[in-house]
Amino acid sequence: MTVLIVTGTDTDIGKTVFAAGLAGALGASYWKPVQAGIDPSGDKERVAALSGLPPEKILPEAYRLNTPASPHLAARIDGVKIDLARLALPQVEGPLVVEGAGGVLVPITETLTMADLFAYWGRPVILCARTGLGTINHSLLSIEALRARKVPIAGIAFIGEAHDENQRIIPQIAGLPSLGRLPHLDPLDADSLKQAFATHIRLSETFNRG
């Protein structure tokens, strides 16, 4: 079973859109193990609308929390205890795209971060990064955190308006491939995402390393 994990340097950078495009391009199943915040809906519903995948490919979350906050805080507020055993990767036919919550060091519990969970899984990660100001520092720190836990990194996917220097220097310093840049889309729908993903994202780079 091919598994690709989509994470980001921060929250709200577009990794759900990227995960939808990736899952759609691969015909993969999609899973977000911990969803924190479901008003008006969660990321699973957004991926269902954008990926073009059949409903059976959109897997239910292990934890679906009401509070829009870091998972450790959302779980505390909602009165839920997160158990690592429930976060084991689901077994599916074909590829699986897994989306993390927030950035790589977001805490899931008082003692477990997203990066720790990625290390537990041992599967390759795609790091989604903004193209704009601040992304060099955020990206390289995220990569260091992943490498400190020996998490394999398939590559970096940039999201946003073109910024040639940032898109050049981060992969160079990190020694990682750039998988391309997904622009902001208007309108954003399943058709526009499919076309943009096919045009701008180099999946061959991912599988060469993964």
Results as ranks from 00 to 15, higher is better:
2 T>N: 13
34 V>A: 10
84 L>T: 03
188 L>E: 06
196 A>V: 01
137 N>V: 04
53 L>A: 01
98 V>H: 02
175 G>L: 09
175 G>V: 08
121 W>D: 03
154 A>I: 05
137 N>Y: 04
92 V>Y: 07
113 T>M: 00
123 R>Q: 15
102 G>F: 04
105 L>G: 15
125 V>G: 10
157 A>M: 05
162 A>M: 15
117 L>Y: 03
5 I>V: 11
111 T>Y: 11
202 R>K: 15
96 L>P: 12
176 L>C: 09
141 L>A: 02
50 L>H: 05
210 G>K: 13
210 G>S: 14
159 I>L: 02
77 I>K: 14
105 L>S: 13
177 P>E: 00
164 D>Q: 11
61 E>Q: 00
24 G>Q: 01
155 G>I: 02
108 I>Q: 03
44 K>R: 15
100 G>W: 01
200 H>L: 14
70 S>A: 15
159 I>C: 12
117 L>S: 05
36 A>Y: 07
26 L>Y: 07
126 I>M: 11
142 S>F: 04
84 L>Y: 07
193 L>G: 04
194 K>Q: 13
170 I>L: 06
13 I>E: 04
203 L>E: 07
19 A>R: 00
19 A>W: 01
127 L>K: 11
39 D>K: 13
41 S>R: 15
72 H>S: 09
51 S>Y: 07
179 L>D: 05
96 L>C: 09
51 S>K: 00
125 V>Q: 11
26 L>A: 04
131 T>Y: 14
176 L>I: 03
69 A>W: 04
65 L>Y: 11
150 K>S: 14
104 V>D: 00
27 G>V: 04
165 E>T: 10
150 K>D: 13
28 A>H: 06
105 L>M: 08
114 M>D: 10
181 R>K: 07
8 G>C: 08
99 E>W: 11
16 T>I: 02
113 T>H: 03
80 V>W: 06
138 H>A: 06
74 A>V: 04
30 Y>A: 03
37 G>C: 11
158 F>M: 11
180 G>A: 03
21 G>N: 07
185 L>F: 13
35 Q>W: 08
41 S>Y: 15
61 E>S: 00
134 G>N: 07
99 E>I: 06
205 E>A: 08
